[in-house]
Design a protein around this nucleic acid. Structure first.
Lengths: 137, 137
DNA sequence: ACGGTATTTCCAGAATTATCGAAATAGCGA
DNA sequence: TCGCTATTTCGATAATTCTGGAAATACCGT
């Protein structure tokens, strides 16, 4: 039977699981040294991005191997690709990255705020040295 | 055999930062639906923890399969195990989890604080209704 | 000691992932 | 059109991960 490919192998559509599924995709994408390096590199090169060839060269990985890694990151939503003439420029999707982090923290923090408070404290000096941001919560 | 059973968190290096290798281990551990469910479950059951059998039963997974998942989570430093008579009670290591999140955020935030500012804002109402140590940060 | 419970280890098969050479596709300039 | 560059897709192999049956280990009560 030549039916369509099922890409929902285990638990199907429960509406709450869609988010988990996507998060797992992102975690798996980052759980590999080359891809983690790629994301790091692309984050550093925001917002201009980098063409695929430059990424491969920078990390000393064959182009086709890099291409498959980039495809995995892209499928996970962590990077975006856009063609510029002959090059395909990849960019880190930092919003998506934030979503992954938020997913993780909600998973552990839900109902127990005391867990993430310290984390915010640790994070604040690192990521928000400016005294005040807009308080439009 | 004398397994590694150290009090000092193995996933933190001298500078207090999590190493990439350890972070990858943790990300890979969470990038699997059963294990993500396990961590969620254990986080929900902090600080009492749950015996291995209960975890297996709760998630409808054979005990030996669950045992290997728990070993992976443990190796990644995300859970701890302690024997209580016949049971081995597992607990989520939320500090380690926080380290993973911090690692990720440092990876993308380093040098560009404007990226994580919004994340802290999103996180604050969820996780930190009131600041813990009113430090001089 | 024994029997029962809780959990892990051993093992093996199935599935998935990583890697990369070779070929294919896409765009550009002449 | 041809040739060149940039990138991806194809295909195959090696490595790793997932799964669970069976056996082993650890503990407790009697």
């Amino acid at each position: 039977m030549a039916t369509v490919k099922v890409d929902t192998p285990r638990y199907i559509d429960k509406s709450g699981y869609m988010e988990s599924e996507q998060a797992i995709l992102a975690l798996a994408a980052l759980a590999q040294s080359t891809r983690l390096d790629v994301f790091r590199l692309l984050a550093k090169h925001e917002p201009e991005g980098l063409p695929a060839g430059d990424i491969a060269k920078a990390l000393a990985v064959p182009q086709n191997t890099m291409s498959s890694h980039l495809a995995i990151l892209s499928r996970a939503g962590l990077v975006t690709a856009r063609r510029f003439s002959r090059s395909i420029v990849y960019r880190a999707d930092l919003k998506a990255f934030q979503s992954v982090v938020l997913f993780m923290l909600r998973d552990c923090c839900d109902g127990r705020p005391e867990i993430c408070g310290p984390l915010i404290e640790d994070l604040t000096p690192c990521c928000n040295p400016k005294p005040r941001t807009k308080a439009h919560v």
